[in-house]
Design a protein around this nucleic acid. Structure first.
Lengths: 115, 115
DNA sequence: GTAAATAGATACGATACTGAAACAAACTTC
DNA sequence: GAAGTTTGTTTCAGTATCGTATCTATTTAC
């Protein structure tokens, strides 16, 4: 069971993490790109362009572009589905795992220094 | 004292909130815009263009543009500083308060439905 | 086989953002 | 007063993203 946050604590946490993310020279991802990246890493595969477009309620080209960008950064990779070669599976990478681990640490750190 | 999050819980929370934010048709703010908005509302005034640029480590024109955008949306407003008319104070608005309250609720909701 | 359906990528014009540099206005120094 | 400094905005060319529509490739239906 997760700890329960109050609205004020929640916004405070978001502020500190947002500022930390903007400040550090990590690749500056859009909200969509981050949501897509987190989804690929934290929800069970397979992840297709169509499926992600539906989940996020954005257009397929928007997903294609987000995957383009995240691929350039080495955060995810494309893999053609052998069972249906029209489909493209979006998969995790080592670099993406490292990035998200650091991001998780940033959040934890921000949740600790409230006082 | 805030509740302590584990890295996994933290990323999980971020994923759910990010997806919820992208899905709902709330104005889709960039990371910088959101960080600026949260800072204006959650840290003590006054907030100037220069001060925000230094805090976020971004250029002054970038702050001007973010304030332009947030002003269009009615989330913040500009007020010339009477004590130094070169300075512009970035202030809160009712609409921005409502938006952040809802955003806080979104986070709290996401932190509750892990199971 | 040929036609229809599906998945993803690409083309297109429009909008928004980027940092660096130039700018206007207000304040300070002398 | 004039010169210099500071604050925020504007301009500029370059890049990224947007949604709609179109396109290619693959699979399915017949």
């Amino acid at each position: 069971m997760p700890p329960k946050l109050s609205p004020v604590e929640a916004l405070d946490l978001w502020q500190r993490v947002s500022v930390a993310s903007v400040r550090q020279d990590a690749p500056d991802l859009s909200a969509r790109q981050l949501a897509l990246l987190l989804t690929v890493y934290l929800t069970p595969p397979p992840h297709t362009v169509r499926g992600l477009a539906e989940l996020l309620t954005i257009s397929k080209p928007a997903v294609t572009r987000a995957v383009d960008r995240l691929s350039e950064l080495g955060m995810v990779k494309r893999k053609v589905d052998d069972k249906d070669r029209r489909s493209v599976l979006i998969q995790r990478t080592v670099k993406g795992s490292v990035f998200l681990r650091e991001f998780g640490d940033t959040i934890v750190a921000a949740s600790g220094n409230t006082e």
